[in-house]
């Protein structure tokens, strides 16, 4: 079986005392689009799809974030992707939807450390503090579309398309060094 190997070859990611940026291990990613009654899909996925933009749900290795009125990003173990695709495909006729494997499209940067939220302000114009812990948002980081998952008050994940990742990671790395110097 072919492992998902990241094509992302950024410079060493930053590890300062107050903020760190690292590359998350490969993960399965599915974009789900559907509308109307979601019960059948909920049953197939084994969770209730959140219907408020920005809210998340999780179950048995599957994590889902509502991105739009009819759009969700699913993160799951790479070897679960086939099973979830099969489960949903069986519903296609009765519950039309779209499920697209984008596992290879993007990478996830993990940003944590006491000043992680502040680090994000070098590229995010929206108020990071206004994103509740346990939620997520699609937003822009230095004009690049990203998905920001807030896992803790000082723990974030940032999904970035492959070709934008070096730019975003480079800025975060610069920001990490600035914060480290500021705190020293």
């Amino acid at each position: 079986m072919n492992k998902l190997v990241s094509s992302f070859t950024a410079a060493p990611l930053a590890r300062g005392a107050v903020a760190r940026v690292s590359l998350a291990p490969p993960v399965g990613r599915l974009v789900l689009r559907a509308r109307g009654d979601l019960a059948a899909l909920n049953a197939a996925l084994g969770l209730t799809l959140p219907t408020t933009i920005g809210q998340r749900a999780a179950a048995a290795g599957l994590e889902v974030l509502c991105l739009g009125p009819d759009e969700w990003m699913l993160h799951l173990s790479p070897d679960q992707v086939g099973a979830v695709q099969a489960a949903c495909a069986a519903l296609m006729a009765s519950h039309p939807h779209s499920l697209v494997d984008v596992s290879g499209r993007e990478v996830t940067l993990v940003i944590d450390g006491p000043r992680a939220a502040e680090l994000l302000t070098i590229g995010c114009a929206r108020d990071i503090e206004a994103i509740p812990v346990g939620q997520g948002r699609r937003t822009a980081f230095d004009n690049v579309t990203v998905i920001l998952w807030r896992d803790g008050s000082a723990a974030f994940r940032l999904d970035v398309w492959n070709s934008f990742a070096p730019h975003v990671a480079g800025l975060l790395e610069t920001g990490c060094r600035e914060l480290a110097a500021e705190t020293a």
Partner: peptide, 13 residues
Amino acid sequence: LNVWLTSTTEQWS
């Protein structure tokens, strides 16, 4: 229309 669009530009090389 019951149809959805997903960008796969970077999914596929």
